[in-house]
Amino acid sequence: MNLNMFVQHFINALGLGSLYGLIAIGYTMVYGILRLINFAHGDIFMLGAYFVFFATIQFKLPWEFGVSLAIAGATLCGLLVDRIAYRPLRSAPRISALISAIGVSFFLENLAIVMFTGMPRAVLQPPWLMKPILVGDVRLIPLGLMVPTISFVLVSGLLWIVYRTRPGLAMRSISHDIETTRLMGVSVDRIIALTFALGSALAALAGIMWALRYPRVEPFMGIFPGFKAFIAAVFGGIGSIPGAMVGGLALGFVEIMSVAFFPNLSGYKDAFAFVLLIVILLIRPTGLMGEKMEEKI
């Protein structure tokens, strides 16, 4: 492999990894606060992709507008999922919410089949995103550079919210002690809703960029990216936002590079993620940047 190809693979891995990272953040934030694995998260990703498809291709809205609309729509869906499926179970045993999450996931996938049909649909990539730029001998497409850049900016913004603002402080507090946080005057349900909104917006954006990279949408497109992002969140240390991003990037690199260096193994591409999960669970169950897990009181 020459340097030229390696750079291509590198950028590719960076793109895939940051998409995993963006989805993983939603898992990790919700888990950090509610100790709930939001299985419906991958389906919010799918909805984001569909919404942008309908807005821009069916209704011919301009891209900027279609993307904003899709993010808003998917965020609303994320909020509804919390309100309808999780909030009534807040004081129920954790397993109930988990089962509810699985149910919501099936529901959304099948709703998508009913509403959008199960047929995959092609997403038209805007030409300006695909026109290659030559840097030396390396051919780069703008989309490939845009995905990691946007992700980086968004994650920085999110970290700012979580570590520098009042609602962020409340989020970090809820993750340790809900009752005490309420005693400080925090409306816990509102902060949890905010968490779902932020996670869903990021997932929707990841879904949009995913639909542009692999130019199609289908009702089950959220399942595998969702699984892998969840693995990324566990790998990075569930509950940790930087961990989710690092885990996502690690997974992106393992997946792209393994196929790049061992093309024979490309059929096992998806298996690498799960091998990585098993290894990290054996060696360091709390993940790379995870705190020691304490049972919630």
Binding site: L169, R172, S173, E179, T181, L183, V186, S187, V188, E291
Partner: peptide, 30 residues
């Protein structure tokens, strides 16, 4: 409880219940 705080009643709970992973200043800000 969150209404009570706004009405002017604050409780320092049994067992202190400070947030161990937040700094002293962040605890006060909370």
């Amino acid at each position: 409880p969150e209404e009570m705080v706004r009405m002017g009643i604050a409780l320092s709970p049994e067992g202190r219940r400070i947030l161990p992973h937040l700094t002293v200043e962040e605890n006060l800000r909370l």
